[in-house]
């Protein structure tokens, strides 16, 4: 069983929901990322989605775009990101790490080379925003052969037939994008999410995480009441942006936001 599947199975026993923070690797500086990851775990993270910076993050709003720009100012490469996870794993053997980003850095590194390095580093899954199932083909097989779960997105615009198709290819969990739009731009509508989750759950047997538009404890708790996982990105990255010159403060602020979500989620 993969580390991600084991985690959800464990949470299931206690009735808890997964808290899944996203930060961009290398933001505000590559030297901060591993400490940030440990900080996320201390504040209650169950899985970490680690963003691989890309020059043209087409599906992201200004918050994550600027995070990519900060990371790329220090030339944070995909190889650097993999090394960060290697270092993280020296002190943490349990928390699943999912690399999230765009396909081109992986394409440039080579799928086989990437998958092998990712497996060795202790990376558990990949979420390539611009790699839908129909373009996965051989690459999905390479990822799977190296023990990497492949997390796919489902959107409000995804048809029922397509959800069933995506379900065939997904492992670990699926990521439900709660709003039509880019990251970090609108607040979540929990009633709407709840309706869509019914549609998804009847076609997908693995856990469903929900992201986009979750920016405080109240929203996190509301989503946790209907989903298996709560994914939070821009709300954390905003704190990093505001404290980019003081990494210690940035980590502390991120932990505060995440802890509040953890507490609110666990109260139910």
């Amino acid at each position: 069983m993969s580390r991600i599947a084991a985690l959800f199975s464990e949470l299931n026993k206690t009735g808890k929901k997964a808290l899944i923070p996203f930060v961009t690797a290398g933001d505000p500086h590559p030297s901060v990322t591993v400490d940030m990851m440990h900080g996320l775990v201390e504040a209650g993270a169950d899985i970490i989605e680690l963003g691989v910076p890309f020059s043209d993050p087409m599906a992201d709003g200004p918050t994550i775009q600027l995070a990519c720009e900060r990371a790329l100012m220090h030339n944070t490469s995909l190889r650097d990101v993999i090394s960060m996870v290697t270092e993280f794993r020296t002190k943490n053997a349990n928390t699943p790490v999912v690399l999230m980003g765009y396909l081109n850095p992986v394409e440039a590194m080579g799928y086989e080379t990437f998958a092998k390095a990712a497996q060795q580093a202790g990376i558990d899954g990949v979420l390539m925003v611009d790699m839908p199932p129909e373009e996965s083909g051989e690459n999905a097989k390479i990822f799977a052969d190296h023990g990497l779960d492949i997390i796919y997105l489902i959107a409000p615009t995804t048809t029922d037939a397509r959800i069933s198709e995506i379900a065939k290819y997904s492992t670990g969990y699926v990521y439900y994008v709660s709003i039509k739009g880019v990251t970090g731009t609108a607040a979540i509508d929990v009633d709407d999410v709840s309706k869509n989750l019914e549609r998804i759950r009847s076609r997908v047997s693995i856990p469903v995480g929900v992201g986009f538009g979750i920016n405080n404890g109240e929203a996190a708790a509301a989503v946790a009441s209907v989903a298996d996982g709560v994914i939070v990105g821009s709300a954390l990255v905003n704190k990093i942006a505001a404290n980019a010159a003081q990494p210690d403060v940035a980590i502390a602020e991120v932990k505060t936001v995440l802890s509040e979500m953890r507490t609110a989620m666990d109260k139910q």
């Binding site: 087409m58 599906a59 396909l103 925003v129 611009d130 790699m131 839908p132 129909e134 373009e135 796919y152 997105l153 489902i154 959107a155 409000p156 615009t157 995804t158 048809t159 397509r162 995506i166 994008v177 039509k180 739009g181």
Partner: peptide
């Protein structure tokens, strides 16, 4: 049918746009 010219082309987009 999927928009490929040999290895080129295709549809590498985030899920929200697939339906459109």
């Amino acid at each position: 049918a999927k928009g490929h010219f040999g290895i080129f082309g295709g549809r590498f987009v985030s899920e929200t746009l697939s339906a459109a």
